[in-house]
Simulated assay, not measured.
Amino acid sequence: MDKLVQASVFAPWEDPHEAPLISFKGVTKRFGTFTAINNVNLDIYRREFFALLGPSGCGKTTLMRMLGGFATPTDGTITIDGQDMAYVPPNKRAVNMMFQSYALFPHLTVWDNIAFGLKRDKLPKDKIAARVEEMINLVQLDKFAKRKPHQISGGQRQRVALARSLAKAPKLLLLDEPLGALDKKLRQDTQFELMDIQEKTGTTFVIVTHDQEEAMTVASRIAVMDHGELVQVETPDRIYETPNSVYVADFIGDVNLIEGNATPRGDGKTELHWAEDQSPIIAECPHAPGTTARCTFAIRPEKVSIGKERPTDRTNSVRGKIHDIAYLGNISTFKVELSNGTMVKAQTANNRRIARRELTWEDDVWLSWTETAGIVLVR
């Protein structure tokens, strides 16, 4: 049974016999004296929904442009399906790109927008018609085939652009901030549609985004970038639960960060001495230093318990006063000030009506967490 469950997990990057569809080997891109991409090594596999995530200017779009053939590496090689892309122009690559603006032809109908690339390839009319109908059904726009872009919604235009990009059955689809123009509710709905379409077509998707929530939702793996370098490449759950640096922990989601001097205990746990009037924090440290070193403890607010009584079953507990409360509907975030001025956030699920909430502003409370709830980061 265990083998069947394990076999159903999609993780080709963990299979040494699986050949990547895309390989970046020592790829560097310079613009004059500025290094936009610095010695990137990365493999992306077939059927992956891969996300390049980072703030503006981190190099993610440059990396995508090189993959699409719109920019040339200064050093290193990029291969797609084993073929070196150095001298392959964009129109000869089995790659399509979907832009944030969608770039639809305003004078053409939905049907003709999707058919455009197929007509340029001079496919027989019956094959074009069959493929366009297949794509229209895939993105559920059969009732809008005769309309023009200005006659449909932003979410529908996004689906037209996606259908047009997939019509030529590329091995790889590049998506450059594809949902940036949509409002939050529509963006969330469209994320699940994208995942469903990617799974149905089996096309490898590579998405560029600065939206952490979007990357966490759609991607099989995420590459977090900073200043042209890959900081961490992992699955969303590992990026969130076991970040490899303070940068990743702080960039992905909400987090409490507490600096201190970490001393290994020899049992896989580390003691972080962080304030004179507080007990040391006991936590795991995957890359524990051999001696005492300056480190940072990171813990997500939802993993911090809050209550009026001091817990007796937790190693880690601190006392403070509620400084602020953010009510977000499904959850509430409590900002608690400790005796030394440190602010720590805790989150609780609102499974009771707000009128029955036990905690309020200025209440004295205890915060606590288990030894495995957070992580000590060396860098």
Rank of each mutant, 00 (worst) to 15 (best):
I128W: 07
D183A: 09
L123N: 00
E134A: 09
G180Y: 09
D112H: 13
A115N: 04
D81L: 02
E134L: 03
M98G: 10
Q100W: 10
M97H: 01
K127T: 05
T203V: 14
I152M: 08
K92L: 00
D126N: 15
A115D: 00
S153R: 07
L179H: 13
L179A: 12
D189F: 04
V206P: 05
H150V: 11
T204R: 01
E193D: 12
D196P: 00
T190S: 12
K119H: 05
L138D: 01
S165D: 12
A86W: 05
K200P: 01
R159F: 02
Q100K: 09
D183F: 06
R164W: 10
V132A: 03
N91I: 00
E199S: 10
M85F: 09
I78Q: 15
L172A: 06
D126T: 15
A169R: 04
K146M: 11
R120S: 03
L186C: 02
L182W: 12
T203Q: 05
A145Q: 11
I78V: 15
D84T: 13
A86T: 13
S101I: 03
A129H: 08
E199W: 04
A129G: 07
A129Y: 03
L194V: 10
R147A: 11
E193Y: 05
D142I: 00
R164E: 09
T203S: 10
K185N: 13
A167F: 13
D84K: 13
A94R: 04
S165F: 11
F205N: 01
P106Y: 04
M98S: 12
Q151S: 08
F144K: 07
I80F: 04
T190D: 07
A115Y: 03
I197F: 11
K146V: 11
V206R: 05
D84M: 11
P89K: 04
A130F: 01
N137E: 14
E134K: 07
Y87S: 13
E133P: 00
Q158F: 08
D142P: 00
K171D: 12
W111S: 05
K122P: 03
T190A: 12
L179M: 14
L172M: 08
W111Y: 15
E177I: 07
L138P: 02
L141F: 05
I114P: 03
L141A: 03
N96R: 00
E177R: 06
T203I: 06
G154Y: 10
Q83A: 14
Q140L: 04
L173V: 11
I80H: 04
A163H: 06
V160H: 12
A167I: 13
I152D: 09
R157G: 07
D176C: 12
K168S: 10
K125C: 02
E134C: 01
K146Y: 11
R164Q: 10
S101V: 04
P106I: 02
I207G: 01
L162V: 10
A167V: 14
F99K: 08
A163C: 07
D176A: 10
F144W: 06
D121M: 13
K148G: 12
L172I: 08
E177T: 06
A129W: 01
I197C: 10
I78A: 14
K119Y: 00
